[in-house]
Design a binder for these strands. Structure first.
Length: 475
DNA sequence: GGAACTCGCCAC
DNA sequence: AAACGTGGCGAGTTCC
């Protein structure tokens, strides 16, 4: 696989991008060293306590007896204890590799979660693993990289095969966000320069929007251009779970998330209905084998449980549900988004004919690619390039107007600033102007509105504290 | 004592 | 027929 900037525009994007991003690395971002050190000690203590608790249980004792030198961080030892000494049946296996052609019995969190239903004593151990990850990877990482309270994460443009960026030392791209507890612990470490505030500007639905620039699918364009009329993820939740109506509060909101993260996005990346069904079931609190019952799933707004509701619709067990999701998949590509499907077919055909692909942003991908790769790379790359071009221009304008506010980095579809309080509105205005109006003028192939969600944190507040949210759109 | 591999998990 | 895209990194393990 090889990818090259084959237009002047693409070349300039890389050169200017490298310069703008390195300036952020050089300037760096402030971290709260005292907080990190305190948190590090506290988490170590907490981890010790959890392990002490676990080591007194049956499984814990068995582990100690089995090995001369116990290592609570060794998955190999855990495997031995669970699957050999205790006779527990593995939930799934790891990917086949050189050393293990059939894969090994997996002991990831998903497996432990299921096993813990019969062995609740595993709970403190699972908690330990979570906290150890936060402590050793994130808090320790910051302490290791900080110099005088400032870290200097790198942003690379030459690593990702899609010409996305990557980040290292520390990796600014994977700081915990979804899990509230982890987010709080880790993001509290990041603070603005004294007297400044943190601001983050997210491009909403950038990958879906960028896919539209390629396939121009009518229905998807309608969804993206008129989100207030129809909402793709809501519609898919209704279809996947056979809802009669969708209500914004309650379980339906979770089911919408399920449809988005368990069906729509995985489908875009090339996943298929069997995996989707399992994911959708777990989002809906349904069993992934056997019959559904009244007890399954939380209550819908109608008063019925989700399990009860599905039985009423003729979905009696998990296998019925899988069949149903297969039909949803079929409808998704052959009916709802057939324009997208046709583009994928054309795209693959073109690649096999010519041996390379072109992205809308002027990059050429050649070499060996799978069909999923062929349809993903151009979208993922161009989506990031929208952010990068915006980053460069915003950077240029901040300097041009001699503003104090500055960019500290980027997270794929999100610009991150330190804003100077008096310039708050100016920064928002610049982002709005550049992202929503200037960018679509530069790249005429952009056929969907650019929408930005700005998160403005209080002055001197850290990255985990409250922020106000503003939506920026073209005037 | 380090390189390479494996697994797991964090982000988009 | 097969079956999820892109990264970084910690920790354990294996091999040289």
């Amino acid at each position: 696989m090889k990818i090259q900037a084959t237009t002047k525009d693409a070349h300039e994007l890389m050169h200017q991008g490298v310069q703008a991003l390195s300036k952020a690395s050089i300037r760096g971002m402030h971290v709260d060293v005292k907080y990190c050190e305190k948190q590090h000690k506290y988490l170590n203590k907490k981890c010790d306590k959890l392990i002490k608790k676990f080591s007194k249980t049956k499984l814990g004792k068995r582990w100690s007896k089995t090995f001369l030198s116990v290592n609570w961080n060794s998955d190999q030892q855990l495997r031995e204890v669970l699957f050999k000494k205790s006779g527990i049946k593995p939930v799934k296996r790891t990917k086949p590799s050189k050393g293990h052609p059939k894969g090994q019995a997996s002991c990831d969190n998903e497996s432990l979660e299921l096993i813990s239903k019969s062995y609740p004593e595993l709970k403190p151990f699972m908690e330990y693993k979570k906290l150890a990850k936060v402590n050793n990877t994130f808090i320790a990482g910051i302490l290791k990289e900080q110099v005088n309270g400032i870290i200097h994460p790198f942003f690379h443009l030459h690593i990702a095969r899609t010409f996305r960026s990557s980040s290292s030392n520390i990796n600014f791209h994977n700081q915990p966000n979804r899990d509230k507890k982890q987010r709080k612990i880790v993001r509290s470490s990041f603070k603005p320069a004294p007297g400044f505030g943190i601001m983050a500007a997210d491009f909403s639905g950038i990958e879906v929007g960028t896919s539209c620039c390629y396939h121009k699918d009518k229905k998807m364009l309608h969804y993206v251009r008129h989100p207030e009329k129809n909402n793709m993820h809501t519609d898919m939740a209704v279809q996947c779970y056979l809802l009669d109506k969708f209500v914004k509060e309650g379980l339906e909101k979770t089911l919408r998330k399920g449809a988005k993260n368990g069906f729509v996005f995985p489908q875009f990346y090339g996943d298929y209905y069997k995996n989707n069904a399992a994911s959708l079931a777990s989002w809906g609190n349904l069993p992934t084998k056997g019959s559904f019952s009244k007890k399954d799933g939380e209550k819908l707004i109608t008063g019925l449980s989700l399990g009860e509701h599905l039985i009423k619709k003729g979905i009696f067990d998990y296998d019925d549900f899988v069949d149903h999701i297969q039909e949803v998949e079929d409808d998704f590509w052959n009916n709802r988004f057939k324009g997208y499907r046709n583009w994928k077919k054309r795209n693959v055909r073109e690649y096999y004919k010519k041996g390379y692909l072109k992205t809308l942003t002027g990059f050429t991908c050649s070499g060996e690619m799978s069909e999923n790769d062929i349809n993903n790379y151009p979208i993922q790359g161009a989506a990031f390039h929208k952010l990068l071009k915006t980053y460069i221009e915003v950077f240029r304008r901040l300097a041009h107007y001699k503003m104090k506010s500055f960019l500290i980095g980027q997270i794929h579809d999100e610009l991150v600033f330190n804003y100077y309080p008096k310039e708050e509105d100016n920064v928002l205005e610049i982002v709005q102007e550049v992202a929503c109006e200037w960018l679509p003028k530069q790249w005429k192939w952009i056929n969907v509105p650019m929408v930005v969600e700005a998160n403005v944190f209080d002055v001197d507040a850290n990255w985990a504290q409250d922020s106000k949210v503003l939506e920026l759109k073209a005037a």
